[in-house]
Computed example of a mutant assay.
Amino acid sequence: MKVISTKDAVGCILCHDITQIIKGHTKGPVFRKGHIVTEEDIPVLLRVGKENLYVWEPKEGMLHEDEGAEILRQFCQGGSRKEAAFEGEKKCFRYMSASRASEGKIELTAEMDGLFKVDKKALYEVNSQGEMMIATRHGNTEVRKGDKLAGMRVIPLVISREKMDKAGDAIRQENGGKPILSLLPFVPKRVAVITTGSEVYKGRIKDTFTPVLEEKLGHYPVTIISRTVCDDDPQMVTDAIRGALEMGADLVLCTGGMSVDPDDRTPLAIRNSGAKIVIYGAPVLPGAMFLLSYMEGGQAVMGLPGCVMYAERTIFDLVLPRVLADDPVTKEEIATLGEGGLCLNCPVCTYPNCGFGK
Score class of each variant (00 low, 15 high):
341 G>M: 04
250 D>A: 09
178 K>W: 01
269 A>S: 11
98 A>Q: 01
117 K>M: 08
177 G>Y: 03
278 V>F: 02
200 V>S: 02
343 C>Q: 04
71 I>D: 01
111 E>K: 02
84 A>H: 15
57 E>H: 08
133 M>W: 10
181 L>W: 00
165 D>W: 04
356 F>P: 13
159 I>G: 07
101 A>K: 08
65 E>W: 00
98 A>L: 14
83 E>T: 13
40 E>I: 07
227 R>G: 04
283 P>I: 09
268 L>T: 09
26 T>H: 14
139 G>Y: 08
141 T>G: 09
239 D>Y: 10
225 I>E: 12
156 P>V: 03
119 D>A: 03
118 V>N: 02
136 T>V: 08
41 D>C: 11
255 T>Y: 08
138 H>D: 01
317 D>T: 02
276 K>S: 15
279 I>W: 11
200 V>N: 02
260 V>E: 05
37 V>R: 05
241 I>P: 06
242 R>P: 01
90 K>P: 01
109 T>V: 15
142 E>Y: 11
276 K>R: 15
205 I>T: 07
91 K>F: 07
300 A>D: 04
131 E>H: 11
110 A>Y: 10
32 R>Q: 13
306 G>D: 08
130 G>R: 00
346 C>Y: 12
17 D>P: 03
5 S>M: 12
109 T>C: 09
24 G>E: 13
7 K>S: 12
301 V>R: 07
189 K>Y: 02
125 E>N: 03
313 R>N: 12
337 L>M: 14
108 L>F: 03
356 F>G: 09
224 I>G: 05
220 Y>H: 06
294 Y>V: 11
84 A>C: 14
214 E>G: 01
158 V>E: 14
69 A>W: 11
160 S>E: 15
86 F>E: 09
315 I>W: 09
188 P>Y: 00
288 A>C: 15
322 R>S: 03
170 A>K: 10
119 D>H: 04
12 C>T: 14
292 L>W: 06
44 V>Q: 05
202 K>Y: 15
339 E>Y: 07
132 M>Q: 04
219 H>S: 08
215 E>R: 11
75 F>L: 03
105 K>S: 12
150 A>V: 05
82 K>C: 00
276 K>V: 11
166 K>H: 14
260 V>H: 13
125 E>K: 14
11 G>E: 11
245 L>Q: 10
293 S>F: 08
16 H>N: 08
91 K>P: 00
151 G>A: 10
13 I>L: 10
178 K>N: 12
335 A>K: 10
34 G>K: 05
301 V>A: 06
